[in-house]
Structures are given as structure tokens and as C-alpha cells.
Design a protein around this nucleic acid. Sequence first.
DNA 1: ATCCCGAGGG
DNA 2: CCCTCTGGAT
Length: 210
Amino acid sequence: MSESKANSILDTLETAFPDARLLLDFRNPFELLVATVLAAQAPDERVNQITPHLFQRFPDALSMAEAPLEAIEEAIKTVSYFRQKARFLKEMSKVLVERFEGKVPASLEELVTLPGVGRKTANVVLANAFSIPALPVDTHVARVAQRLGLAKSNDAEKIEMELCAQIPQERWIRASHLLGFLGRRVCKARKPLCEQCPVTRWCDFFEKNR
DNA sequence: ATCCCGAGGG
DNA sequence: CCCTCTGGAT
């Protein structure tokens, strides 16, 4: 698998979708971390709907760590798994206060020790709050990578490694935005809109199904 | 029924 | 790796 193929795909996507970006547009690490935890298996639009009030009420790890669980549940009750997530957020905030001086750590190893934070969420925070090279692989990025022949594995972590091996480090963050955007808007799981896709000339999936 | 930018436990 | 968690929209 050549690096030039991945670069060509990214160049084409950048031209086609210059505005592709993370839908959860928070630079504050704590806010991005919380929003990303909430966004697991829930539409980003619904998360963006509640975050203004949520961060007014709980602006930092300390206020969330000290809040009653019921108060957090009430503030996020419109998102999926809100009880489980409220528990994660409170426990996560307590760990931030007790072990990280109330600040979000800027390393993968530390981030994944936080309750409710897995590899994908950790990479989102690293890339978008700290501008540290990382390539978060969600279901969309994974699917697109497989269809384009950029990854052969089914495991998200292995797909991340396969992508990182083919994409220059300085493009990892942008690659996650572009591949994610393509996956959400065009290269859908169910009914992919191949006629709208700018990168079909590199796509195994398109070749096979035409 | 299936999807939504998953994580944790078995 | 597979299952569950759990809720609303399409």
C-alpha cells in the first residue's frame, strides 16, 4: 500500500470538502472530552444542543466532580445512554481532580485511564484540543478505509495503525476529518452515494459493485 | 430494522 | 472478539 495513494485521496478530498471538520468544535480540552464522551452512539447534533447549558452549569472538572449524579443526568438526559454517561462523567471528573490537578492530560496513555474514555475518544482529544498528531478511527473512518483499500483489518486499532503507516504524520488530524466527513455524508454504510463520491477511482468497493 | 464519530466487561 | 449498555430518529 503506497503512501502516494493515500496522499492522492486526501488531496482530492481536501479539494472536494474544504470545510470538513469535527462537528464537536471545542478547543477547551475538558469541553471536547465531555462532548466526545456524550457523542458515543449519539448524533453530534443532539450533543451540540445541550452543551451550552451543560458547560454553563459544569464549566470544569471540579464542578462536575462535586455535582450530584442526578444533576448530571438531568443535564444530559436527551442523549443515548445518559445514565451510564452521567456516571462516566462524574467518575472521570473525579479522576481528573484527584490525579491530574483538574486538567485533561495530553497523552494517550493517561487519557485512556479515564472512565468512559477509550482509544477513539482519547485520540479525538489529542488531535483537536491539543493539536497532537493522532488519527481517531470511528466506524465511519474504518468503513471508508476498508472500502478504499487503505486497511484490511476489521479492528479499529489495527486500522488506525494501517492508516498511520500510509499517511504522513502531519496529515493525520486532517485525514480523520476528511475520511470521517466522507463516511458520514457520502460513503454511508447502507446506501453509499457513489455517484457523489470524488474518490471512486481509488475505491475497491466501487469497482466491485459497478 | 438500523443507525448514531464507543466503551467496558466477559 | 462478542455482547451489552439504552434512546430517539429514520
